[in-house]
Every structure is written in structure tokens, then in C-alpha cells.
């Protein structure tokens, strides 16, 4: 049995032809996408939104993490002193505590000072003036050094502080941060989950789009098979189309995320200013942008690969 002859050409020449065909397939697919602007735009927009949603959540949790990370360092324990402790004892205690190595800073808020601050907050003047006595205790704000700020160390510090005879009760300001961080961890898991689901969605969108395209071009595919096109040759333009959809969708997603971040920056700055701080929203960054685009291309390729595998069996004799 004689083998079927292939066109005779040198290997280097064949490689060039192969490359040229890839280039042509890629260009042809892109041209076809731009040839039907409305359906392409809609598909790209759906992919873009699907990718932008988890990306936005990621950027959001990432920003919250940097924000709380900064507050972590100012975590403090408020130690309320007994009512009968007078100013001198309180000052002496503050001095003693300042000598401890694990505390970076100790602030004493004396009773008169606390009262003045409380009055300044407003709304309570009347109530306070009705009292003969200052009801507020003196407070020691204990700021641990950066090396002594883990939740366990803070708890240990709290216990020690409570053991002091002058101490009445203590409140850890870190509790809400811990809660926030737990919520953040939850949000990150949710982001991952949502990302996986929406990624699956992108896969299905691209797969279905390519499937329809294959059905539309059934006649053309049959003719290609008749004149001896290999399965790879016929699949190639569809795979490129999937990759293009993914690329355009990924770019659309990064655009959407950047747009949302820019829109939110104003409100965030105002909010930060109310808390007496300054905060710049971080966007996706170069790595994030690349990750979104690469994810888009990969999902597009896999989606079209699945569609092509299911609907283009290649030339077959029945």
C-alpha cells in the first residue's frame, strides 16, 4: 500500500508555511470578529463583566487588608483604672509601664481630661453637669511595640494589665480588627468561589459562541474537508477566535476595574479624611492586569477547545 504523498518542500520551508498559516488564521479570526461588531461586543462585554466582578472583589479585599494592616500597628489596649485611683498614682503607674520593653508607648488620659473630651463630643453637657462628681475613670492607652502585637501577645498583655491592683477593666481595641480580618478572609474565599463560578461561565459563553460559529460555517467546513483539510487546519481559526474573545474580554475587565477604582477614589479619600487619614485605592497593578488578561485568554482557548472538540470531529468517512 503506497502512502499518500505530501507536498514536497524542505522542513524549514514547511515551518515557515505553518507559521504563516497560524498568522493568517489569527488575523482571519480577528477580522471575522470585527466583521460582526454587535455580537462580538456583546460577547466580549459579558466576558469582561464576568472577569471584572471577581477582580473588583479581589482589589476591594486587597485594599481593605492594606488598610487594616496599617491599623494593626496602632492596636491598643485601653486600661480603665479604678475610680479611687488618684492622679499621682495614675501617673506613677504610667511611668512604671513605660519602662516595660513590650510597650512602645503609654498614654495617660486623666479623669479631668476625659471629661473635657467627652464634653467636646457634644450632646452630653447637660447630663454631665447634673452630676456632682466626674463619673469618668482615668484611662491608660497601652500601645505594644510592633513585635508584641500578635493577638496572643495582646491577650497576654491584657491579662497582666488586669492583674494590676489599680486596674478596673480593660478593653482591647483589636477585637473589631480581628473580626474585620475574619470577614476579609471570608470575603477572599467568596471571591475565589465567585471567580471559579464566573470563570466557568466564561468557558460556557465562549464555548457556546464558538459552537454557533461552527454551525454557521458548517458548509464551509464541509468544503474544507472535501478538499483535504486536516482536523487541525479546520480547528485553528476557531481556537484563535476563542483566544481573541478571551483577550478582548480580559482587556474589557481590566478597564472596568480601573474605571470603578477611579470612580470610588473620591469617596474613599473623603471617608479616609473623616477618620483623619489618607488612603489611596490600589488598582489591579501590572501583575493583576496581566493575570486577568491571561486568565481571559486561557478561558477563551479552553472554551473554544471544548466546543471544537465536540462539534468538529474532523474529516470522517461514515
Amino acid at each position: 500500500m503506497s502512502r499518500v504523498r505530501r507536498p514536497s518542500a524542505r522542513p524549514s520551508e514547511l515551518l515557515l508555511i505553518w507559521l504563516a498559516h497560524h498568522l493568517r488564521s489569527a488575523r482571519e479570526s480577528l477580522r471575522r470578529l470585527f466583521g460582526m461588531p454587535l455580537p462580538t461586543t456583546m460577547t466580549v462585554a459579558v466576558i469582561g463583566i464576568s472577569l471584572a466582578l471577581p477582580a473588583t472583589l479581589y482589589v476591594g479585599t486587597d485594599n481593605l487588608r492594606t488598610m487594616t494592616g496599617r491599623w494593626d500597628q496602632t492596636a491598643a489596649i485601653s486600661l480603665f483604672l479604678r475610680h479611687e485611683v488618684d492622679s499621682d498614682t495614675a501617673r506613677a503607674l504610667a511611668e512604671r509601664l513605660r519602662a516595660r520593653p513590650e510597650l512602645a508607648r503609654v498614654e495617660l488620659i486623666e479623669r479631668e481630661q476625659a471629661l473635657a473630651e467627652f464634653k467636646e463630643l457634644g450632646g452630653f453637657e447637660g447630663a454631665l453637669e447634673a452630676l456632682d462628681d466626674n463619673p469618668l475613670p482615668a484611662v491608660l492607652a497601652l500601645y505594644p511595640g510592633p513585635d508584641h502585637a500578635t493577638p496572643e501577645q495582646l491577650r497576654a498583655l491584657e491579662q497582666q494589665a488586669l492583674a494590676l491592683p489599680e486596674a478596673d477593666f480593660a478593653r482591647m481595641d483589636t477585637l473589631w480588627i480581628e473580626r474585620l480580618q475574619a470577614i476579609l478572609a471570608l470575603a477572599e474565599t467568596a471571591t475565589l468561589l465567585l471567580g471559579a463560578l464566573l470563570g466557568l461561565g466564561v468557558l460556557l459563553i465562549v464555548g457556546n459562541t464558538i459552537r454557533l460559529e461552527i454551525l454557521n460555517r458548517r458548509g464551509e467546513i464541509e468544503i474544507m474537508e472535501l478538499v483535504g483539510a486536516t482536523a487541525a487546519f479546520i480547528r485553528r481559526p476557531f481556537l484563535y477566535a476563542g483566544a481573541w474573545y478571551g483577550l478582548l474580554g480580559g482587556l474589557c475587565a481590566t478597564l472596568l476595574v480601573t474605571l470603578s477604582a477611579t470612580t470610588l477614589q473620591g469617596s474613599v479619600s473623603r471617608l479616609a479624611a473623616l477618620y483623619g487619614g489618607e488612603f489611596r485605592l490600589a488598582g489591579l497593578g501590572l501583575g493583576g492586569t496581566l493575570a486577568v488578561v491571561v486568565t481571559g485568554v486561557a478561558l477563551g482557548l479552553v472554551g473554544s477547545w471544548i466546543a471544537v472538540g465536540r462539534h468538529l470531529q474532523g474529516a470522517e468517512a461514515h
Binding site: 500500500m1 499518500v4 504523498r5 474537508e225 472535501l226 483535504g228 474529516a315
Partner: peptide
């Protein structure tokens, strides 16, 4: 066809066979 037993031709070779047959 042309010395090729089509029954024994693997699927992969079908495109190459068709290039030898104008339809």
C-alpha cells in the same frame, strides 16, 4: 484507489487521500 486500500486507511490519512482526488 491508486494502490491505497481505503478500508485500511486510518482516519488521520483521510485528508491526505482527498488531496489526491479532485471532486
Amino acid at each position: 484507489v491508486d494502490g491505497r486500500d481505503l478500508g485500511a486507511l486510518p482516519r488521520r490519512q483521510i485528508p491526505l487521500h482527498r488531496r489526491q482526488v479532485g471532486m
